[in-house]
Simulated scan of single mutants.
Amino acid sequence: MLTKAELETWLRAQWARRGHQLGEGERHGVEVRELVEHSAERAQARELPYLDLWILMYDEMLSWLLSLQGVFQIRMKAGRPMGDFEKALFLILARIVADSISIRHLILLGFDTSARTLLRSTAEYMEVLVAVIDDPPFASEFLKSDSPAMAKMFWAQHLRSGRIARRVRAAWRGFATGDTAEDEAAALWFAAWGGQWTEQLSSLTHPSMGACLLTINPPSVKPHGEAWLGHWGDKADFSAETVYIYAANLFPLLVVHRKFPFEGFDAALAEPIPYDPAIEDHRHVKFGRDVLGSLILSLGKPDNARHVFPPLDLEGSLHSAD
């Protein structure tokens, strides 16, 4: 293996051949390690009460997802049989959890635009998870996407051009308790709630001037006034909306199938998962979904918005999807 010291020696030799002598430990350009370390220290020292509030909410949501995954992980460790349904659920949850932890890191280090870029993908995984729970045979289709070619085919057949959104709408229609026009309208509204930000997230994912400007200067209640550019990492209140978008996309997982996985899924599971109040993950999944569902709904109420959303002048951008 090439060692770090050997690489540094080679780099100095290359510069020397070009007439530039570098001493040991010297380099041309910015010392990236120092920049990154200072950026992280600066972010940690920056006090943003609004964002601290939203990170607490975010941690509650992520903790619930970890418990849901834990329900299936316990069975895996015990060597219990797992069919396509359980395998797909565990794998999708693993990706959502990994993305969610990454988003948290990015927000707290001050890379909100990068966090939203990742959130665009995470939201799609959440939609697929809702679709699998609502239609367990769909799990087998997901498990076929185990190569680049098959992943592309899965996306083309089941995700693109609103295909996955239609599955989410079907899940919400099944959730509606009545068959009145009002019930249908409510189901459609909730089905479209998280998707309201798809265009915005996509505009940040694909090259655009707006994405660059938000990266360089993320909005915050109290501008720092330093000679510091946002693309080096600038923790900002603007990330409150990022967490809200995450919450809106998580909401269907909490509400649409409220008894999942303990009731109503025996036919889909290789073995039923009876609710056991002695298991913490079981308790958290069963009751935590109601706590989180109530919290997320309350965040969208106009009377509550001024207490949780930072007062940013973004010409209607912040909280604009309500």
Rank of each mutant, 00 (worst) to 15 (best):
T3D: 08
L7V: 15
G19W: 14
R27S: 15
R27V: 00
V30C: 08
R46N: 08
E47C: 09
L48A: 04
W54T: 08
L65R: 02
L68Y: 03
V71M: 04
Q73H: 09
R75D: 07
L89D: 00
R95K: 13
H105E: 12
T113W: 04
S114D: 15
R116Y: 09
L118K: 13
E124S: 12
M126W: 01
D134S: 14
P136N: 04
S145T: 02
P148L: 07
Q157K: 11
G162L: 09
R166C: 11
V168H: 12
A170E: 13
A176F: 14
W193Q: 07
G195E: 09
M209K: 09
A211L: 04
A211W: 04
L214T: 09
I216M: 13
N217F: 06
P218W: 13
E241H: 11
T242S: 15
F251K: 01
P252D: 04
P261S: 01
D266Y: 02
A270Y: 00
I273R: 02
Y275G: 02
P277Q: 08
I279Y: 08
H282V: 10
R283M: 12
R283Y: 00
D290T: 11
G293C: 12
S294D: 15
S294P: 01
S298G: 14
S298I: 09
K301M: 13
R306W: 03
